[in-house]
Design a protein around this nucleic acid. Structure first.
Lengths: 193, 193
DNA sequence: AAATCTGATTGATGTAAATCAATGACTCAT
DNA sequence: ATGAGTCATTGATTTACATCAATCAGATTT
C-alpha cells in the first residue's frame, strides 16, 4: 500500500523505520475508478495525491470547449493543482482517473504538519520540486521551439510508457496539437522507412 | 548588499540575526557588467545566482542561430541552469547580463552545506520552487493554448516591469514569437481604440 | 556632422498546423 | 447480430504566424 511512496522517498532521502511509520499516519488511502474525478474545476484542490497505482490526467477546458492536458501522473508521481492546494483558491483544473487508481492523499494541514515534524520530508519535497521544475523548463523550451514532429519524438523518448496507456488524442492535447495533426505526424514518421 | 536576499527569504521563512549571519558566509559577491556572461553553453553551471541588482536572461541558441529566451531574472530572483548545477553536466544555456548586475553566488557545495546547516533554508528553497513550478505550469499552458496577442497581453499583466527594461525582440523571443509578429500584434492592440 | 549599430516597423510571400467534414475501425451494451 | 459511442484516419480548405526583404528611427562612435 505504501510501496511506491517509500520507493519514491528512498530514492531521494533515507528514512528510518520509525520515520516511515510516522509518515504513514498522515496519508489517507483512496481508490478512484476510471473516469472518476479527484478534482473538478470550481472546487478547491483539497489533496496533494501520490499515485500508488493507475494513471490520471489534469486538464483545463477553454471557452470553445477544448480540453488542454497539463499533466499525466502514473505510479510514483504526485498530482494536484498546487496553486489551489496551497492558497485555497478555487481551481481551474480537472483531475480525472484514466485508469482505476490507488492514491495516497495528503491534505494541506497533514502536509504542513508532516513538513514540520519530519525535516527529511521537506528535503524530499524540495528535491522532487527541483526535478519537476527542470522537466517543466524543458517542456517550455520544447513547446516554444519544436515542430509537431519533434514534440512527438520527444515525448516518445521521455514518456514511452504514458504513450502506450493513453489515447492518442490525449497525447495530442498534452503536446498542444490537434488529433488530426498528430495522426499525420505519425503517418509521416512511419512511411519514410 | 544582502537586502534583496533577506527580503526574499523573510517573505517565506523567519531568520534570526544569528542565522542571517551564518547565511551570509556562504555567498560570494560578484558584479557583472552589461553583456557579460555568468554561464556560457558548454560550461558547467557553477553557481546558483541571486540577483541583488540588475537584470539577466538565460537562453539557448538553436542550429539556425536563433536565440530562445528561457528566463529573465531581475532583483529578487534566482537564476541558474538548475540541471547543470545539480548534476555537473555541461549546460546548453547561456546566462547573460542585460544590465549591470550585482549578484550573490552559491556554489553547489556551499548550497549543500547551507541546506544541511540551516533547515530554514531548505524550507525557503522548497517554497521558492513551489512558486516557480506554478509559474512554469502557467507558462506552459499559455504557450500551448494562447494566440500571439493573448500571450503578449498576458506577459504585460504578469511582468510589466520586465517589458519596460528589455528590448522588444527579447520579449518576442521569450514568448516564442518573431520580432515581426510581436510588432504587428502591438500595432493591432493600439489601433482599435 | 558623418558613419555605424541596433532595434522596430512594414510589406509580400510561404508554410505548418488548425479547422471543417467525412469515413472507417473497434469496443461495448443491448 | 445491431446500434451507439469512442477514437483514428484522410482529404479539402483556411489561417496564424514565420520568413524574406527593405526601410526607418535612435543611439553610439569617430
Amino acid at each position: 500500500m505504501f510501496e511506491q511512496l517509500f520507493k519514491s522517498i528512498n530514492e531521494r532521502v533515507a528514512l528510518t523505520e520509525e520515520e516511515k511509520e510516522l509518515c504513514k499516519t498522515f496519508y489517507t488511502f483512496r481508490r478512484l475508478r476510471k473516469r472518476q474525478f479527484l478534482l473538478q474545476e470550481g472546487d478547491v484542490c483539497k489533496y496533494n495525491a501520490f499515485v500508488e497505482k493507475g494513471l490520471l490526467r489534469s486538464y483545463t477546458v477553454d471557452d470553445k470547449g477544448n480540453e488542454h492536458i497539463i499533466q499525466f501522473a502514473a505510479e510514483g508521481w504526485w498530482i494536484s493543482d498546487l496553486y489551489s492546494f496551497l492558497t485555497g483558491v478555487t481551481s481551474v483544473y480537472n483531475i480525472e482517473a484514466l485508469e482505476d487508481c490507488e492514491l495516497l492523499l495528503l491534505t494541506k494541514s497533514a502536509s504542513d504538519e508532516l513538513l514540520a515534524r519530519l525535516p527529511k520530508f521537506e528535503s524530499y519535497q524540495r528535491i522532487l520540486l527541483q526535478g519537476a521544475y527542470i522537466a517543466m523548463q524543458r517542456r517550455i523550451h520544447a513547446s516554444l521551439n519544436q515542430t509537431a514532429e519533434e514534440k512527438y519524438l520527444n515525448i516518445i523518448d521521455i514518456y514511452p510508457d504514458i504513450i502506450q496507456r493513453v489515447p492518442q488524442h490525449m497525447v495530442a492535447s498534452y503536446l498542444g496539437l490537434t488529433p488530426e495533426t498528430l495522426s499525420r505526424v505519425r503517418k509521416q514518421l512511419i512511411l519514410p522507412k
